[in-house]
Design a protein around this nucleic acid. Structure first.
Lengths: 231, 231
DNA sequence: GCAAAAGTGTTTGGATTACACCCATGC
DNA sequence: GCATGGGTGTAATCCAAACACTTTTGC
């Protein structure tokens, strides 16, 4: 039936690449590693590696990220799969991108395995990367932008306690458009936030109130009232 | 560096599964094949097969679909990738789902290769399928539902010449909710449609006007005015 | 004429926009 | 007091939902 014998098809390799987004200094940042291994020795790349033969993809994504950056317990979501026959110089390696959102300040990143260095880079300042990683990164950032507007995932990027202005800045950044402060606040009124009663510290103007996302209440109203997040 | 030698990682196989959606008798239908080959001999499945070692994924998807169903020139879009280590009984086969939308009446489907039979099945009447194809189908249908509401792809499912009521029925079907006729028509007013001046035939009530989608004008206003399709 | 579906207009209330204004803090 | 951003109210406008009504066809 096949022109090639079935068993000869078991000649591919499969990898996962992890795009980790954070929000820092008013900019979306992405986590990069410097490779201490061929191919693309000394090139910057997004963290990624081969999947073990009997390993589930989601499990592999988590393991690979931990091995290279020391990050764990992240909620990794599948993005696109890239399979250009020439994307890897050493053979046919198909890769699936996963992405996660993190609160940069809450985690210690640490280079290990073949990652010689790890750092955060603003999404608009990413250099030329190994393999087709620029392509992977761009397409995953497009996906992030879409998801941000109809799923309550901005709170995974913002600090646990955030000001409404920080939240607004995140949306202004990804949509590349300024918004009216009063109108933004009216728009997010249906989103359940907890007013913490605390205030910003060490600012040289009136300190803003701090909020956190009420995810329990969100699930409640999403189920009962069919409320859908929308910005 | 690896616990397993790099070359031993080249032991996977990779496949594509194609979810083809159509709209018939007021229902979304999906194209199924009956397998005349092991594994899952005589089981129903969605059309899919292994990718050749040097073949691009998009190219493979097109080839596989043509081989099994005689469909060609479809616009296949990538959906999710499925990689459970036990999803294929004969080894580690990772698969990527692709989907396409077609106007059922415009195509002749024809079983060939290891497809013994091909048929359209309403999405809500799909039987137990081979492999994890029920999972693949369901998750791809969820994706379709999302895309239908913010991309002008409903017109790939509707006949070239359609009535506004057919269009409304498609959205009512996927959203599982009835809509007000007058309000639906107001909602789609910004979408550029060509009034053909023709009418429905052989109906025992007032015949509806026929329309077609003006994709050129759509691209124009999408670029110039930043118009985004939304239903 | 009647049934059935096509096709349109009106009213109402809620959201979105633009814009103006006041408030709290550091220096 | 003044600079800086925090925080809120109002009026005009647009949009969506609910509903009623007229039109055109087959029988």
């Amino acid at each position: 039936m096949y022109k090639i014998d079935f068993n000869n098809f078991f000649s591919y390799s499969f990898s996962i690449d992890c795009v980790i987004f954070g929000f820092k200094d008013g900019q979306v940042n992405v986590l990069m590693i410097k490779r201490s291994m061929k191919p693309y020795l000394n090139h910057w790349a997004i963290p990624g590696d081969l999947v073990y033969p009997d390993e589930d993809l989601q499990v592999a994504a988590t393991r690979i990220l931990t091995e290279l950056t020391n990050l764990s317990n992240l909620d990794l979501h599948q993005a696109q799969t890239f399979g250009d026959p020439n994307r890897h110089p050493q053979g046919r390696v198909i890769t699936t991108a996963y992405f996660a959102l993190i609160r940069i300040a809450d985690f210690e990143i640490e280079a290990s395995s073949f990652a010689e260095e790890v750092k955060w880079v603003p999404i608009h300042e990413v250099p030329d990367l190994a393999f087709d990683h620029n392509l992977i990164l761009n397409s995953t950032y497009e996906l992030l932008k879409k998801k941000l507007s109809y799923e309550p995932i901005c709170f995974d990027l913002l600090p646990e306690k955030f000001t409404l202005n920080q939240m607004q800045q995140l949306f202004e950044y990804v949509n590349e458009a300024e918004m009216d402060k009063a109108n933004f606040r009216k728009k997010i009124r249906p989103i359940p936030l907890i007013a913490l009663g605390e205030k910003q510290q060490n600012v040289k103007h009136r300190p803003a109130k701090l909020f956190s996302f009420d995810s329990e209440k969100y699930s409640e109203i999403a189920e009962e009232d069919g409320y859908r997040f929308k910005i």
